[in-house]
């Protein structure tokens, strides 16, 4: 089930934020590519990239929140998260996407596509977890 309150948007989604990849390279958040996440996870000893497919998008408990149901990894585990509509997820091969891209762009100047059912997002799990 979803958590009771959506998580506020953290500062690193603001356009121009400096992100450090696992190999030490610095990139702006808006310049990140799918390969950056994949290569960083390959270097990481603890974290593993998983594919999380958007299965459902429903209204959340507050007007600006949505509950997104993901199917995670090879096991297709069902995971729900409640987030603000402007919360961006990184979609494989596409880049930043949110349920309300206009609001994400307005608040964070981060260009976004519309997050849709069927989109495959980058997510993380712990290595060794089965």
């Amino acid at each position: 089930s979803a958590s009771s309150s959506p998580v506020a948007l953290p500062p690193f989604f603001m356009r121009g934020s400096i992100i450090q990849l696992a190999d030490g390279e610095l990139k702006r958040v808006e310049d990140l590519k799918t390969e950056d996440f994949i290569q960083s996870a390959e270097i990481s000893s603890e974290l593993k990239i998983d594919s999380s497919t958007v299965e459902r998008i429903d209204s959340g408990q507050s007007p600006n929140a949505v509950v997104i149901q993901f199917s995670v990894g090879e096991l297709k585990a069902q995971v729900c998260v409640e987030v603000l509509v402007e919360y961006p997820f990184f979609v494989f091969g596409q880049g930043w996407s949110s349920c309300c891209p206009d609001r994400t762009t307005q608040l964070f100047e981060l260009s976004c596509a519309k997050l849709c059912v069927g989109d495959v997002c980058v997510s993380l799990t712990l290595r060794g977890m089965r």
Partner: peptide
């Protein structure tokens, strides 16, 4: 004079949701 302030640097993994699948076994 304005002292240069260090720019915050965020680790790549902070941008990615941590979605832990439920353990099946």
């Amino acid at each position: 004079n304005v002292e240069p302030r260090s720019v915050p640097v965020f680790p790549w993994h902070s941008l990615v949701p941590f979605l832990a699948p439920t353990q099946s076994d």
